[in-house]
Computed example of a mutant assay.
Amino acid sequence: MSAQPEAWPGADGSPVSCREKLKVLAENHAELTQVMRDAFEDAILMGVDETAMRRILSDLVAALPSPKRPDR
């Protein structure tokens, strides 16, 4: 999986610098990486097409609603 980003860009383009926020972001990245790896490997081992599974995971992320929008 991809490495954690060197910087987490804020809404204004400047990097997030708060240590606690960076800690949470790093923990979330590590957890998500492991969950996605497990789901991907399980699907492939159960016979799901690898390209299709990559698309399914990508579509899942693309469909996440923004917590900033009221139409959640």
Rank of each mutant, 00 (worst) to 15 (best):
R69H: 09
A26Y: 05
A26D: 08
S14E: 14
R55P: 07
T51K: 00
L45A: 08
P9H: 09
L32Y: 12
L22E: 05
S58K: 15
V24S: 13
M36Q: 02
V24L: 14
G10M: 05
A52V: 11
R19A: 15
I44A: 14
P70Q: 05
R55A: 11
P15F: 09
L57H: 02
P67Q: 10
L32Q: 04
L60G: 10
R37N: 09
S66I: 00
R72F: 03
A43R: 00
D38L: 11
P67Y: 07
N28S: 13
R72Q: 04
L32C: 04
N28H: 07
R54K: 14
G13L: 07
A30E: 08
V61K: 12
Q4F: 05
M53F: 08
E6H: 09
F40N: 01
H29C: 10
K23Q: 14
D49R: 10
A43F: 08
D59L: 09
K21S: 11
A62V: 02
P70H: 04
G47F: 11
D12A: 12
E27L: 13
I56Y: 06
E27Y: 06
D38C: 05
D38V: 03
T33C: 04
R55K: 15
K21P: 00
M53G: 00
S17A: 15
D42M: 07
V24R: 13
D49G: 08
P70D: 08
L22I: 01
V35H: 05
M1S: 15
D38Q: 11
R55W: 06
G13Y: 08
K21H: 08
A11D: 13
A26C: 00
C18A: 13
S2F: 03
L32N: 11
G10R: 12
S66K: 01
A52E: 10
L60H: 11
I56D: 06
M1G: 15
L22K: 02
V24N: 15
K21C: 12
G47N: 05
I56T: 15
R19E: 14
R54S: 02
T51M: 02
A26F: 07
L25I: 07
G13H: 09
V61A: 13
P70V: 03
W8R: 04
D71V: 08
R54G: 04
D12T: 13
P70M: 04
F40S: 00
A62P: 02
P67C: 03
K21T: 12
E41F: 12
V16Y: 02
D12E: 13
S66V: 02
K23P: 02
E31G: 10
A11Q: 11
A52R: 14
G13F: 03
A39T: 01
M1V: 10
R72P: 01
E20N: 14
P15I: 13
D59E: 14
D12Q: 14
R72W: 04
D71T: 11
R37K: 04
P67N: 10
